[in-house]
Design a protein around this nucleic acid. Structure first.
Length: 217
DNA sequence: CAGTACCG
DNA sequence: GACG
């Protein structure tokens, strides 16, 4: 699958918003392939079920997570890390579907980051009331590659802050099909998701799914 | 501190 | 009770 299948599929329904140097929102970017994405997602969660991981502080995360790709992001009492195996099964994470890879590469290119080769996709499932507090993505080996974040399902408010936790984050409403890309000077910016409100999406149901693509190694 | 609790 |  190529860039054309995404960026050129329905250009009149897509637009781009710049958040700062190195960060953009690609509105409705994933919409054209929502069915293929959701089908692939079912395959992944069937093999590597969503689960609530434990933070190093011993707290259960409200957001349920799983992974696909060579590396998966995991957390437990010993800390955050990338692992090639699912600690719940001992098996490798499900492979990254072609449609995921094509989506991530097309979004990165559209945002000005050519040659993005993600080897990790963290999948987050948010129920109403769940949240992800402000954090940095900093467990990757190098920070040259951008982060590509795909929103599916019910709306959420994304927080996008600065290089320091104290920097007041901007609030960015995200809906089904929106893709946020940040890299370069924005790569280590703090970000998070405010508690979700009750809502229903006709295809996804009463929750939000987020796909976060990274180059872990 | 990828968390919750508490308080104004 | 929602919000910061």
């Amino acid at each position: 699958m190529t860039f054309d299948l995404f960026a050129d599929a329905e250009p009149d329904r897509m637009w781009c918003e710049q958040l700062c140097t190195g960060a953009v929102v690609l509105r409705r970017f994933a919409l054209a392939h929502e069915a293929a994405i959701l089908t692939a997602l079912d395959g992944i969660t069937g093999a590597a079920p969503l689960r609530h991981m434990i933070t190093p502080g011993g707290f259960r995360m409200s957001v349920a997570m799983t992974n696909c790709g060579r590396y998966g992001w995991v957390t437990d009492r010993t800390g955050y890390r990338y692992d090639t195996t699912d600690p719940a099964s001992g098996k490798p994470w499900p492979g990254m579907p072609e449609v995921f890879l094509a989506l991530a590469q097309a979004a990165a290119s559209s945002a000005g980051f050519d040659g993005f080769t993600p080897d990790a996709c963290l999948i987050n499932r948010y129920e109403p009331g769940t949240r992800l507090s402000l954090h940095q993505d900093r467990n990757e080996r190098d920070f040259d590659a951008p982060i590509v974040s795909v929103s599916l399902g019910i709306p959420a408010v994304f927080q996008f802050g600065g290089a320091r936790r104290e920097d007041k984050p901007m609030r960015v409403p995200l809906t089904h099909g929106d893709v946020v890309v940040w890299g370069g000077p924005a790569r280590l910016r703090y970000h998070g998701v405010l508690p979700l409100k009750e809502a229903t999406h006709p295809l996804v149901g009463h929750h939000r799914i987020n796909l976060t693509f990274r180059k872990a190694a």
